[in-house]
């Protein structure tokens, strides 16, 4: 199947007096229509910067310096600003993590949804926009949508606000939805509702979803394909089942070991020691080696590249599969 979005060799750097600091460093990914790509990693590994790069919203002094972002046959990075603006929010929708801060508190939610619609369709009448916005709120299962249209964000709960954000992102029927930690700030019960909702909406509309999260539980529920990111790079790519059934990269193993599971009896969690290195202080060789329990001397010298370890499965580790080390 043809891919809707192909990211190829994307590199985003931040200018600093000490030289260019890479936030995204040579990332290649793709997602097909109707499919969900999960991007996993800890804070600071470049997940959000990747999605902002796709949307061409990288804050200054950062900029994309290499690579292509091909959306439906067009390189977004080469588009003139006005053409990009026609795509952003229209053919590519985005949901941000914080439903509390992503809505403007002094406008009603109805105003905010119709604003986005109006921006992409100047000819529609106010009444028509209102009808469409109420339909959008209805679609994300906000009860009494016609009443809620005139509510201010503070009158809604966190789950409701996140639904408004989703309604807004979906109001123009995007082909691609980028959801950056859409459920992280929410209670588990609300999270379950929102994930179910996203799945249903995807089944109806056939949109592609890029789901950014640090929660492997959410990935298992949602993703067809998974990319694990570390320090600005993709360190493992696999299908949504293979990443759990056949994890290869030690970082993936560490993430899997850290997840507390309700069905588990073992009481000690397998944490990953230390934290993600800052992009201006990346270690030599493999960027994960200072935190890796398997690290060999070669890991401090060799910068591993993604290599195939099975059909549609790649990992950037010179030691994988790690069980060979046990012998």
């Amino acid at each position: 199947m043809a891919n809707l979005l192909v990211i190829d060799g994307l590199r985003t750097v931040f200018r600093s007096p000490g030289g260019d600091v890479p936030a995204v460093d040579g990332v290649s990914l793709s997602v097909a229509r109707g499919k969900t790509l999960g991007i996993v990693g800890e804070s600071g590994c470049g997940k959000s910067m990747l999605s902002l790069s796709v949307m061409r919203l990288v804050p200054s002094p950062g900029r994309v310096v290499a690579g292509r972002v091909v959306f439906d046959g067009e390189d977004l990075l080469a588009l003139p600003t006005h053409a990009m603006r026609a795509i952003r929010g229209n053919r590519i929708g985005m949901i941000f993590q914080e439903p509390m801060t992503s809505l403007n508190p002094v406008f009603t939610v109805g105003d905010q949804i119709t604003e986005a619609m109006h921006a992409h369709d100047r000819s529609a009448s106010k009444a028509a926009l209102r009808t469409r916005a109420i339909a959008a709120l209805d679609r994300v299962r906000i009860p009494a949508a016609a009443w809620r249209f005139d509510d201010y964000p503070h009158q809604m709960s966190g789950g409701m606000r996140q639904r408004v954000m989703i309604a807004m992102a979906l109001s123009c029927d995007p082909d691609l939805l980028i959801a950056d930690e859409p459920t992280t700030a929410l209670d588990v019960t609300v999270q379950a509702q929102i994930l179910d909702l996203l799945r249903d909406l995807q089944a109806q509309s056939g949109m592609a979803i890029i789901l950014i999260t640090h929660d492997l539980g959410v990935v298992a529920e949602m993703a067809d394909e998974v990319a694990v990111m570390y320090a600005g790079r993709v360190v493992e790519r696999a299908s949504g089942t293979a990443i759990f059934d056949d994890p290869q990269h030690p970082y993936t193993l560490g993430l899997l070991g850290s997840v507390p599971r309700v069905e588990e009896t073992r009481s000690r969690l397998l944490a990953i020691e230390g934290s993600v290195p800052a992009p201006f202080a990346l270690p030599e060789g493999c960027r994960f080696h200072p935190r890796c329990v398997f690290a060999a001397p070669a890991c401090a010298r060799v910068d591993p590249v993604l290599r195939g370890l099975g059909p549609d499965h790649q990992a950037a580790c010179i030691l994988a599969p790690v069980e060979d080390l046990a012998a």
Partner: peptide, 25 residues
Amino acid sequence: MEAPRVATPAAARRLALYADRRAAA
């Protein structure tokens, strides 16, 4: 309560190895 699903042998082996290394460290 869904008895702990045994991960695939490959995943289980690697996670066990990871746990050993962590404990040693």
